[in-house]
Design a protein around this nucleic acid. Structure first.
Lengths: 349, 349
DNA sequence: TTGTAAGCGTTATCAC
DNA sequence: GTGATAACGCTTACAA
């Protein structure tokens, strides 16, 4: 009669027994195969196979004091804005033998603190944070645990935190400058929610700054803040255009809002971009698929993930890394962006 | 001169020392506060505060043999299809004190095996799998570790695995039936990729089954398989309509494809739904935002996440759970769906 | 109510 | 190249 071998999962000791070696050897065979004689190695491998042995991660983590795990805390999973980055992160880490832990805080700073703590308890080796503004205790915990981390998507204005991201303000200035060059002066903006979100704030500030310098008009009633959904984009367009005197162009906080705005134009029979020019920030690459009339500043979000992952991997390998990396953004004009409608332009000439 | 207290993170023993109690008491204070005298409790809490103590998860997991962690392996993070479900999962688990580990396999069965193994090594207490078809070794590993798990989005045809999901075939039959009732006979379908995806397969099969029973036509050249992206939806519409003789309606594998298809119609000046009726399966709830002319079968994807999470939580609590739960889907007609254009209908009358 | 101490399954430091 | 064995930091009988 056989022992009840499947009652509980096999341990290193079981493997060692079966392979007639010590646990130390099994451990080596598993993690440093080249430090073990080929013959022993194969005996161990065989034992592992027949027992269906799987390393006990917690025990390994406890003994080795590392988990080969990286945590990423992002604002939301509920839309695809961060999916490119997240996917690139996961892929890059996976190839390096690391596992990505993912959590979202739904734009609630308290939740961000909690999930960060949960990650630290779980023994992550490194942490990816999205954005530069975080609850002080997030930074305190990171500090207290000497945890390697990197801020992403934006650049730390103080230069105190390692970061890899975009210059959101410069991107906004660039986009607004392009529209000004075309002759637009009557602006509207459908921004993301700026609370706890320096990316949205910077984009807004950049637009304002560019317009102020060159005489564009962006009255308060032509600025709305909306969550990043298609529906909000439609709504936003309604709100900034229902007033007398249409803007000649609308800048959207990201491409989800922009596509929503375009949908609303279509539904109302407004021609894009002949009557109104929609532009935005291309965070998700939806834009490139849906875009007659959509000019965007493109953010290389997948690259961001790769860089963020590599930043941490380098540091974990004990190498030095540049503490601040700015990723270049790109103005993407899709052929159809028009100058402001003649009648409006003539008012100025 | 102070000891170098921040050199390494504080342990339970440090807390115990500071609070002048035993480690056992600290442990209790942390996990079963009511089993500790209030005074002692507060001493411990104070010590925890001043030391900035954070539980060492690996050590806890090793000793307690559980991690309070649930893994979910989904096909992709690259678009928002599964975001609703994932978010609901995370939220529900979080409220129950569990952490969600998330990984994607990008529709590659080998990768699915790898990430599943990684999760098991990390000591997850339960596993959420998406879909019913998986590599045999996935099931073998689950089995070998007595790991509670649940399949989602589809229903296990053999009834051997616990699952909570939708009857994708019935949903397809329902949608096709609705169109047949309106008088449509010339169908086209822009399906998702059916390889390794029983959801897409079932939807396709359901449409075919309904049409066969009632005389609808779905010629091979009017069926295309596309990845779930907006661009693919546009492309798909081009492919199924470029032939002579337009279909009067197009069924899309999900709402991303449907919205892409509508965008293509708009771009080509085809009226939806007067000349062509677009319908689809509403997995993401984008549809409700973008939908003049879009009729869908709505899948309650967020509820799915809640149910899946609760299924696992119940089992982990040692309670019995119904091993198979079907979530009802709903036909959502958004007011504008039209009968087939008269000239085509007249061909049949 | 609290303390003592034996694990939990690895890794890592030594010898051999 | 391999084997003993002492950590790793916590939980949990069992004792007090």
């Amino acid at each position: 009669m056989k022992e009840n071998q499947t009652r509980k999962s096999a341990t290193l000791a079981d493997v060692a027994r079966l392979a007639k070696v010590s646990t130390a050897t099994v451990s080596r065979a598993l993690t440093l195969p080249h430090k073990v004689k080929p013959l022993t190695l194969s005996r161990v491998e065989h034992a592992v196979q027949t027992l269906g042995y799987v390393t006990h991660g917690a025990a390994r983590a406890l003994a080795s004091r590392r988990t080969r795990t990286i945590g990423a805390v992002i604002p939301t999973l509920d839309n695809a804005i961060f999916a490119n980055t997240t996917h690139a992160l996961q892929k890059t880490l996976d190839e390096a033998g690391y596992t990505l832990l993912l959590a979202s805080h739904e734009f609630d700073p308290e939740v961000e603190v909690r999930v960060t703590r949960a990650f630290i308890e779980r023994g992550i080796d490194g942490l990816v944070l999205l954005g530069t503004s975080h609850h002080p205790s997030v930074f305190r915990m990171i500090e207290g645990h000497h945890l390697p981390y990197v801020l992403t998507w934006a650049l730390d204005p103080n230069g105190t935190h390692p970061c890899v991201g975009f210059d959101n303000r410069a991107a906004a200035i660039r986009l607004a400058g392009y529209l000004l060059d075309l002759g637009h002066r009557e602006f509207a903006m459908i921004s993301g929610i700026t609370a706890n979100n320096e990316r949205a704030r910077e984009r807004m500030a950049g637009v304002r700054q560019a317009l102020a310098a060159r005489g564009g008009r962006l009255p308060a009633k032509r600025v709305v803040e909306k969550p990043f959904t298609l529906g909000a984009g439609r709504e936003g367009l309604r709100e900034v255009t229902d007033e007398a005197g249409m803007p000649t162009c609308v800048i959207c906080g990201n491409d989800v809002l922009a596509i929503g705005a375009i949908a609303e134009c279509n539904a109302r029979g407004i021609a894009v971009p002949q009557q109104i020019s929609i532009t935005g920030f291309d965070d998700m690459e939806i834009a490139s698929l849906m875009t007659p009339g959509l000019t965007t500043v493109h953010f290389p979000t997948a690259e961001l993930g790769v860089y963020a992952a590599n930043h941490l991997l380098e540091r974990l390998a004990g190498r030095n890394v540049e503490p601040r990396r700015e990723l270049p953004v790109e103005l993407v004009v899709r052929g159809t962006t028009a100058p402001p409608p003649a009648q409006r332009e003539s008012g100025r000439t």
